[in-house]
Design a protein around this nucleic acid. Structure first.
Lengths: 110, 110
DNA sequence: AGTATTCATAGCCATATGGTTATATATTTG
DNA sequence: CAAATATATAACCATATGGCTATGAATACT
């Protein structure tokens, strides 16, 4: 995954409404109205959120008659999760090292 | 972690410069100048990026003399990773179910 | 003391988000 | 065919980002 794609994926995840839509889509595909229903927002606002999710490659839409069915594309999310997991190991390690150092220093002091 | 905090964490991760800074911080704490050095941006721009990371709770700064030392706070990242991992299971499952269905449908057709 | 370094803040600009209302288009229903 | 439904798009507004230059404040160096 290239950099701009990661930008868009994390950007798409930075809004509670869009995260909620993705969570709802974990239960299976639905149409745009059903995705918009839980939120106190206008229909165009919901469409905009879906456009952000779509540009991030996180969802795909299929038109069936007048309805648009939406489903999650798991790939980009896996990669975003992978990015975090990869560095989290280093950060956690470093954090633990500092903790250990502080514990040792405290011990020395005693 | 509350919703706005998750918003800010994912928002902070949605920029390549900030992700790069976090990656650099995996090797240990450094000062602001060292973090800014790899990027062709002005010093105030770097400070802004760090402010975004700080407001997201991803870093902490300690002033030592005229220098400001920056280090990663791993907690919020773990939670962001956890959010993705939690739903990824559902999404992946659903994706596999669709795959399986399509495979079955294809089989039926033969 | 005077200069250089490190960093933050203020002020400005362009673009993206997140929301709105109004309107257009396509499909389904009566 | 007419009306209702589902969705998209346009146009507008406010706020946040991401960048810049200019400047201020604190610390360190000579």
């Amino acid at each position: 995954m290239n950099t701009e794609e990661l930008d868009r994926v994390f950007g798409a995840l930075s809004d509670a409404t869009r995260r909620g839509m993705l969570a709802q889509l974990a239960q299976g595909e639905t149409n745009v109205s059903a995705l918009a229903a839980p939120y106190a927002i206008s229909q165009p606002a919901a469409s905009k959120h879906l456009r952000v999710l779509e540009r991030a490659g996180l969802i795909e839409k299929t038109r069936r008659g007048r309805e648009q069915y939406v489903r999650v594309v798991p790939g980009p999310l896996d990669e975003a999760g992978g990015w975090i997991a990869h560095y989290a190991a280093f950060w956690r390690h470093q954090f633990d090292a500092v903790e250990a150092y502080l514990a040792t220093a405290k011990e020395q002091k005693r």
